[in-house]
Design a protein around this nucleic acid. Structure first.
Lengths: 174, 174
DNA sequence: GATATGAATGTAATATCATAACAGGTCAAG
DNA sequence: CTTGACCTGTTATGATATTACATTCATATC
């Protein structure tokens, strides 16, 4: 593929670029997300309880997706209950409030990198390093809705995920 | 959205419209798919053995997605082995050869309605009747690739699925 | 035809993902 | 200080998926 020369619009007004594939101050990225989570929860009249907060912290440790049982193991280490519902309930809460996403392809969960912003996420899953990034699924979703409409189908929720290689792993693979 | 008046191109040259949501001669639809499966397998130098053929027949009974264990139950009834790998292996074979698809959202499998044709399928899953249809994911996939490229990510495989209502269930829901 | 070979199938055991149902605890509103 | 809603803990079970190994089958070759 030739180098892109025209500036592609990486940052539409309504959605900031995903930091997952770029070098970034991750501590800041995570603490910011946590702070935004507090306000999202408060705004929704919901409580970011210790388990929920801890689960979000765990997911925020890096830009990968964790299975519910891995989250559970971590919770148990921290003294929380170690039965599956403990993890599933916290994850469900986070997903419902847009603070985390479920990656269907992996049966796993990842922290949302755009909590609070309205966004239609597509997930980019790197096969090299397992990093998961969010891309703007707006145009893809519109195309999907159009294809569906041609068959008389009305889309309510969509799952748009891609497996492939992130910039770093693509370079490594040479 | 206003009514569409320009004819939308429902049947691009390379892909016939999916019959799942339309009234159609299903026996013919299924037997045709089975016949095409034979030639696809032969062309690939693979064998559509009795288990594999039977699994495809089971999937072809209607336009829904079946879990591996439901397929397995049906196989056992027919005298085939009743351990999970029997079903999973046959399903894997069918998926590899493009004769069936895995629906991530459902952890289930559906017969391909376009076997042999080159196609990029998006799956439309009706929440009313559980029917699964394939739509052309070409444009959606292109949009996804563009969004990914903006982050330097190269897509290898994509999952594009929608939950919603099919024409019939939409009418029923009033 | 006998037989070596690789592919396909059968089976046991186990890993992984997910939910139902209920008991007990926490906390704010009345 | 009690009620009621919500949250957490726990038991039990269900659903999905894979590993490893034994056996059988198809077929190409001698």
């Amino acid at each position: 593929m030739p180098a892109r020369h025209a500036p592609t619009h990486q940052t539409p007004a309504h959605q900031s670029a995903d930091p997952a594939f770029a070098a970034h101050d991750h501590a800041h990225c995570a603490s910011g997300a946590l702070a935004r989570a507090e306000s999202v929860a408060t705004a929704a009249g919901a409580r970011l309880t210790p388990v929920r907060r801890r689960v979000l912290e765990i997911l925020l440790e890096d830009h990968r997706a964790l299975g519910a049982y891995e989250v559970l193991r971590r919770l148990a280490d921290d003294g929380f209950g170690n039965q599956p519902p403990v993890a599933y309930r916290a994850l469900e809460f986070l997903v419902e409030h847009g603070l985390a996403h479920r990656i269907q392809r992996l049966n796993a969960f990842t922290a949302c990198t755009h909590a609070g912003e309205p966004h239609a996420p597509a997930f980019l899953i790197c096969e090299g390093c397992a990093t998961v990034a969010e891309a703007d699924a707006g145009p893809a979703r519109a195309a999907l809705e159009a294809a569906a409409a041609a068959l008389g189908f009305v889309v309510e929720r969509s799952t748009i995920e891609a497996l492939g290689l992130c910039p770093a792993c693509r370079k490594d693979a040479t």
